[in-house]
């Protein structure tokens, strides 16, 4: 800057011009209403009339819940969903955690590509996965079995576990593992004694949400479940057209409550992690 600076010969410059903009809050709250109301409106209906939907409900009774718990097909479907969800979550959690750890701690050249392949089921349309699994199980003769359902859900859950656990591993301090290996711990020992305990919050939240995803999963189950292995969402889906009773309102309410519980549980796990981090530093 060696040019001779001059006095700016600018005259008085006018006043700024502007408007008020109070709309964001209103728009956001309308959106929240749009997001939350549908599920909330189901709740009063689930306590209402047994034969048809009446709104606002004129009476309060548990008839629909009673109906659900006394209908063996509904109970069977619910048990089946819980079974499939538990099994596939357990398998996906094991495989997904190992895969996430392997990917995060390896210096493979194809790491990026591997990750894309592993994660793609998360984003490609569920119906494509469903049809693929359907053809595959038809060929190997597993169609309609619980095994097929568990395998299918595991394929669908694994990418989610990998993403969640990888995020947890990224937060870990790799030097602790180095320290452990310097002290003579083997790879297996390091993984079980050092890595897993630190990952507990991620594992808890991955497990909870995997369970929920599997329990609510419709498309894959719709393609590969059989008459004897119908899951709850499949039964709900096929009964929307046929069922006249608003029993689905009761089921929907219970599913919504399950989602809320799982969200709160995961939030609790997250806070635990925050506390652990705060205690460390």
């Amino acid at each position: 800057m060696n040019s001779p600076a001059r006095k700016l010969n600018l005259g008085a410059i006018g006043k700024p011009v502007h408007w008020r903009f109070p709309l964001t809050g209103i728009m956001a709250w309308s959106a929240f209403a749009f997001l939350l109301l549908p599920s909330l409106i189901i709740i009063p209906i689930s306590f209402g009339n047994k034969n048809q939907i009446v709104f606002p409900p004129t009476a309060f009774h548990w008839d629909l819940y009673y109906l659900f718990f006394t209908t063996s097909t509904w109970i069977a479907a619910t048990t089946q969903s819980a079974k499939v969800a538990l099994l596939s979550t357990a398998i996906a959690l094991t495989l997904g955690t190992l895969a996430a750890y392997g990917i995060e701690r390896s210096r493979l050249r194809g790491k990026q590509l591997l990750l894309v392949v592993l994660l793609s089921p998360l984003l490609i349309p569920g119906v494509v996965t469903a049809l693929g699994l359907y053809s595959y199980f038809a060929v190997i003769g597993l169609s309609g079995s619980t095994t097929a359902l568990v395998m299918g859900h595991t394929v669908f859950l694994c990418p989610f576990v990998i993403v969640t656990v990888s995020a947890g591993i990224k937060e870990l301090d790799g030097s602790i593992e180095t320290a452990a290996s310097v002290m003579g711990a083997g790879r297996f020992k390091i993984f079980t004694a050092v890595v897993l305990p630190q990952l507990r919050p991620s594992l808890v939240s991955a497990g909870l949400f995997s369970f929920l995803m599997s329990f609510d999963e419709l498309v894959i189950s719709w393609f590969i479940s059989g008459a004897q292995t119908t899951t709850l969402p499949v039964k709900m889906y096929s009964s929307v057209q046929t069922e006249t009773s608003p029993i689905l309102a009761a089921i929907s309410t219970m599913l919504t409550i399950l989602s809320v519980i799982i969200c709160l549980g995961a939030e609790g796990a997250r806070n635990l992690r925050k506390k652990a981090v705060a205690a460390d530093s």
Binding site: M1, S3, A5, R6, L8, N9, L10, I13, G14, K15, P16, V17, H18
Partner: peptide, 20 residues
């Protein structure tokens, strides 16, 4: 923001760019 005319804006901006 102050609704200065584009023509004048060009002059003033050139001026301060010169200064710095």
């Amino acid at each position: 923001v102050r609704r200065v005319r584009e023509q004048e804006i060009r002059i003033r901006v050139a001026e301060v760019l010169d200064i710095v």
